[in-house]
Design a binder for these strands. Structure first.
Lengths: 244, 244
DNA sequence: CGACTCTTTGATAGGTGTCAATCATCGTGG
DNA sequence: CCACGATGATTGACACCTATCAAAGAGTCG
């Protein structure tokens, strides 16, 4: 149930059997949400932090003109609102981008965990700072990259993040691919552009022979050139083991 | 020296005299940097987290075309790299936007602080999650707001953040104002637009009677209409006291 | 006063948004 | 099995916002 999380954390540092046990013990109930369902509404009081087990969840902000902007995209193994552990209320909505399963971690058990498991709780907090790094990269994309480069960057990032939890072919195995259960409108909310423009940029990536996205499958045809177009450097994802 | 930090933390929750003492004791050496100076280069190993005492510091990313994007803007009272406490290396550069003074907090002393002062360290970590909230708002601005609305949002945010540390007139005192020691090019790096466009948007805000920015002073002439234009809601800044 | 930095303005180009229509896909019910 | 409606993908024409390029004006400091 929390395998993806463990896989991710093991990229940060080794996890002892005892730590694994503690983490499993802290997990609460599992729940399912259908695509589009709201999981957490902004400003509600939270007593549980939520781990995404399967599917995609995004945090988003609504704007007056009816548009919305995704501010964080969670893949399996990510906590979708670990920052609520301290903030108690989040400043954004959380919704299922695809059918998904989640598992709650009651805050009191997380408190207990921080008391009893120093190293493990450091790793959990590290994961929130890496969420911040991902957001900073998103700022860079939205502020300075062209639409096509921004899109390329997103697909690169997802490749690496999904690969880290075993949900994408390794990059080196020639053509890599992964499932991405979103439509073009949802992509446009992530990328800060219109659905029409998403469609055109996808076409361009296809014509350039870099990538295809069809029936919820991303297939990267030329990783190197895609990464160049995106100016992608995975350093910010923090997926290299070092003592924490 | 750390008054601004204390002021900010007191918006989050009460600070006891003992906590204040501990914080002061954790502070290390003070240093000054001239405008434009690099404070921390990306990927260098860090053993100290840095508090901004005076001036402005930004984190930024360089792009291949020579442009740069500010991903985080620190005002006095903000830690500029508290996340490095866990990441050890940051994924961006840090530079002085204006002449500034900083004070270092060696990581080992911060570790000690987390051991001895539960509540205080929760407040410090809360401040990093609020940094994340600020980044999310930046994503929203860059993704969905027009240039003028984005600019209005920045000025609203700075008013509130600076007011919280006593460096801006309160909003309610009619015309509020604050010092902002940046030029239009630096603004353009924050706002993800060109310097020329910054100039035009400043002119438009001036003509609309909302705000002036001249010789490093922001003067807000009509807070309400500026906030409306920006769709600004200070909730995400977390400046309301509640038990932590 | 000159050298510099910064601000301001104009003309033009180009990227992205908007609007609207057509096409493709797919599950469902007759 | 096919018609149908719903959803999503695709395309074209056009508008508009922002970038680009270039130059002139303003402010500051030695």
């Amino acid at each position: 149930m929390i395998e993806a999380l463990l896989k991710k954390l093991r990229h940060y540092d080794d996890i002892s059997p005892d730590e694994e046990k503690a983490l499993v013990a802290a997990a609460g109930e599992i729940a399912s949400f259908a695509r589009g369902a709201t999981i957490i509404r902004a400003r509600t009081e939270l007593r549980v932090s939520t781990l995404l087990v399967d599917g995609l969840v995004h945090s988003y902000k609504d704007l007056a003109d009816g548009s919305r902007q995704t501010v964080q995209l969670a893949v399996p193994g990510d906590f979708i609102d670990l920052h609520s552990f301290l903030m108690k209320q989040v400043d954004h909505n959380l919704a299922a981008m695809s059918n998904c399963r989640i598992v709650g971690f009651p805050h009191e058990r997380l408190v207990e965990l921080t008391r009893t498991h120093d190293h493990l709780s450091r790793l959990l907090w590290l994961s929130t700072t890496i969420d911040g790094a991902i957001e900073r990269e998103m700022v860079t994309s939205l502020g300075r990259r062209s639409a096509i480069s921004r899109m390329a960057h997103l697909f690169c990032e997802l490749q690496v993040r999904l690969e880290a939890v075993g949900m994408a072919d390794p990059v080196h195995a020639g053509g890599c691919r992964y499932d991405l259960k979103v439509n073009q409108e949802q992509l446009s909310e992530i990328l800060g552009m219109t659905p029409v423009h998403v469609n055109r940029m996808l076409k361009e990536l296809r014509l350039m022979g870099l990538l295809t996205f069809k029936s919820h499958v991303v297939e990267i045809l030329n990783w190197q050139r895609l990464a160049e177009l995106a100016e992608f450097d995975p350093f910010y994802l923090g997926l290299r083991k070092r003592p924490r």
